[in-house]
Amino acid sequence: MLKFASTRLLSAIPTLFIVSVAVFGLIRLIPGDPASLMLGDLADADALAAARKTMGLDQPVPVQFLIWLGNVVQGDLGRSVLNGQPVLDLVLHRFATSAQMVLIAVGLSVLIAVPLGMAAAWRQNGGLDLTIVALSTLLLSVPTFWLGLMILLAFGLKLGWLPVLGYVSIADNPVAGLIYLVMPVLTLVLHEVGIIVRMARASTLDVLRLDYITHARAKGMSESAVLLHHAARNAFGPTWTLIGLILGNLLGGVAVVETVFTIPGLGRLIVDSIYARDYAVVQGCLLFVALTYLLVNLVVDLLYPLFDPRVTAE
């Protein structure tokens, strides 16, 4: 187990390195002087000269990278051109907003989708199965930004049950915060359920075919015990990996939902910064999301042996 964990941790290091090179290099690919890109068009000559010096622009590129990396490690991601705020503070603040929405949505999706997927697999080709498969394929095909818009139209504008514009943080006002979260979370849940149901169904089907399920039945266990004690845990492995991927993908993909419901989250920050050519923020967001994605997948992998102890063996 220890060996498995350490091998997995070590294997993340090269990826980490390449990711940071990629994020550094990407911004350098933009035509123009990096210093003026970072400081914006309105910066005066002195500030530019100072920035060129601190960024080491007179040095060779590898040195510039090391300087940048050194700053990053110390938590210095630069400052936003628009409001002068430190990028790290901005990113963390926005991330908290996105993360609470995403985590609630994915958590709910798993709670709904996994039992549905297993039930569909248990009665494969039955009426329930066909309904679940058809519904999940349908949900999967509806883009979140349109689904969100339709939910907004129905519950916010036509029925007037929920507030259409604005956002209140849960930390400031828990009740109002939750109310503002209902529609975006519902949008995300409907979409993710479609994806997770299909995976849970497929992996349960694979497991139900195996001899140890028949063995469990041969021991005289009831169908529900077979499904819960033997099938569920083994079938959850692939779904677990998928959850990691979904969490990571939502960090980028949540921008559309945040746009629909005007939520000041991380996704919106990235898009706005690209609009505003606020490259320090773009760079900071990219790095932050990539690292979070790596971290989430690392944690998912490290917990995987809970569902399948075989992976720790070589």
């Binding site: 090269p14 990826t15 390449i18 990711v19 090179v21 990629a22 990407l26 911004i27 690919l29 933009i30 990571g248 993908n249 939502l250 960090l251 980028g252 993909g253 921008a255 990235i270 898009v271 690209i274 490259y279 773009v282 990219l286 999301v289 990539a290 994605y293 790596l294």
Partner: peptide, 22 residues
């Protein structure tokens, strides 16, 4: 594969956003 995996380490939507900024 190392380069490929690094690209895969970005969610594809985010990667597209980043590349679009360039």
């Amino acid at each position: 594969m190392a380069l490929n995996d690094a690209l895969l380490a970005f969610p594809s939507m985010l990667l597209a956003l980043a590349l679009l900024s360039v």
